[in-house]
């Protein structure tokens, strides 16, 4: 049986031009990237002023020049991170973006084609968050929330005493802040590596559109 029927209004090209990253997600993503860069680099410098562990970060990857500069960056950057983060969370909840793209998981669809799913575990650029992406993105959202609240505890252990009690005091909050930062750094390492490795992902985070053709569905003609 010949399957070379008149091509349906090419689903591939249709997919390729589709907006896969909503404009709001793209804007908040890049503002967040800047905010996280500022917080991470200045945070390493602040850590270096009085290390918790026998470990110092190379000054070349820190921001602010000296402790006062790093603190100024950190306490300016926190507003960018927090305002942008709250906007993203509200958008994600109100529009259903979180439900659609992160949380909703369809087991039947997932197991319909195991081979495709396995491929999608590592394959990006399909226009949908794959299972690994979903787990990582949900995890990193919670890591940033943990960073914000442990950070607020360190900033105001007296005024936010209930937060301080929750985290077990200033020093405990400081350790949690440190390990959450390591978690975030680890996420960035994976996230950026995959983005660089898979063609078109970074481009689509600017244009919103799928740059490359999605992988062929099963049943493709021989």
């Amino acid at each position: 049986m010949t399957t070379k029927a008149s091509p349906p209004p090419s689903s591939d090209t249709k997919q390729a031009g589709k907006i896969i990253h909503p404009l709001f997600v793209r804007i908040t993503h890049w503002i967040n990237a800047l905010a996280v860069f500022i917080m991470l680099m200045s945070g390493l410098k602040i850590y270096n002023a009085s290390p918790i562990y026998p470990l110092q970060f190379p000054p070349d990857i820190t921001l602010g020049g000296w402790l006062a500069g790093a603190l100024a960056w950190h306490f300016a950057g926190m507003w960018l991170l927090a305002i942008n983060g709250v906007a993203y969370l509200l958008y994600g909840i109100v529009t259903g973006h979180f439900w659609r793209s992160l949380i909703r998981f369809q087991p039947i669809a997932a197991y319909r084609n195991i081979r495709l799913e396995l491929k999608r575990l590592i394959l990006h650029g399909t226009g949908e968050y794959n299972p690994v992406q979903r787990v990582l993105y949900i995890a990193v959202i919670w890591i940033v929330i943990l960073l914000v609240f442990s950070g607020l505890t360190m900033w105001k252990p007296v005024q936010f005493s209930s937060l301080a009690n929750f985290f077990g005091g200033y020093d405990q909050a400081r350790k949690i802040h440190f390990f959450a930062m390591l978690g975030l750094a680890f996420f960035i390492l994976i996230h950026v590596s995959i983005s660089l490795a898979v063609k078109g992902t970074i481009e689509s985070m600017f244009t919103g559109r799928l740059a490359q053709k999605p992988p062929k569905k099963n049943g493709a003609p021989k």
Partner: peptide
Amino acid sequence: MLSGCTLK
């Protein structure tokens, strides 16, 4: 360029 900004 950014790390040159040290409040000084």
